[in-house]
């Protein structure tokens, strides 16, 4: 639950989400996570801890992986944001999403959107990461179900299939 915004006045904030320009009328200190989920109904972005530890709310802001629970809405002004909903176009899964399915990398699914965005971010920097680079690259995203091994396999597999290109 977000902090009480008493004393703040709502204002208009504009940014691009998944290629679409959006303007929202929100408290400036509202968390980006809440703006995405409540105002824009982009509920693929999940809350796990609310303090930047678990990575479930990971989104890409101007190409950088961020925890959207730590970003105030006003900081998103003018930014280009990518959420999980921006990934599969025309109903076709991205290679990375398909690898997650094939390797059993999604169990309960709650960390999956954040994990996929973190993996995408990793693959963009390092198209064919080593196991060590994957472990390091995903260490900001917690998963309680899988013990991570099948997530590592999925990311390595996506790298091999050329997901970053």
């Amino acid at each position: 639950m977000s902090e009480s915004p008493e004393g703040q006045a709502k204002s208009d904030i504009s940014f691009t989400v998944n290629g679409k320009l959006e303007t929202v009328h929100v408290y400036p200190m509202e968390r980006l996570l809440d703006v995405l989920r409540h105002e824009l109904r982009l509920t693929g972005t999940k809350e796990g801890c609310g303090e930047g530890e678990c990575g479930s709310c990971s989104v890409l802001v101007d190409g950088t992986l961020v925890n959207s629970c730590l970003i105030p809405a006003l900081q998103a002004e003018g930014a280009k944001i990518v959420t999980i909903e921006g990934l599969a176009s025309d109903g076709r899964l991205e290679l990375l999403q398909q690898s997650f399915l094939d390797c059993g990398a999604a169990q309960c699914g709650i960390c999956t959107p954040g994990m996929i965005l973190a993996s995408l971010h990793l693959l963009e920097k390092t198209p064919e990461p080593t196991l060590e680079e994957i472990r390091e690259g995903l260490s900001g995203n917690l998963c309680r179900c899988t013990g991570y091994m099948q997530i590592f396999e999925a990311v390595a597999e996506a790298g091999r299939r050329g997901a970053a290109t």
């Binding site: 693929g44 997650f100 959107p113």
Partner: peptide, 21 residues
């Protein structure tokens, strides 16, 4: 055999509906 997870597609696309959604 390892058939695809029944609800897997919803989970990797963010479409799966949890209670807070």
């Amino acid at each position: 055999t390892s058939v695809p997870r029944m609800e897997g597609r919803g989970k990797v696309t963010g479409q799966a509906r949890y209670v807070d959604d």
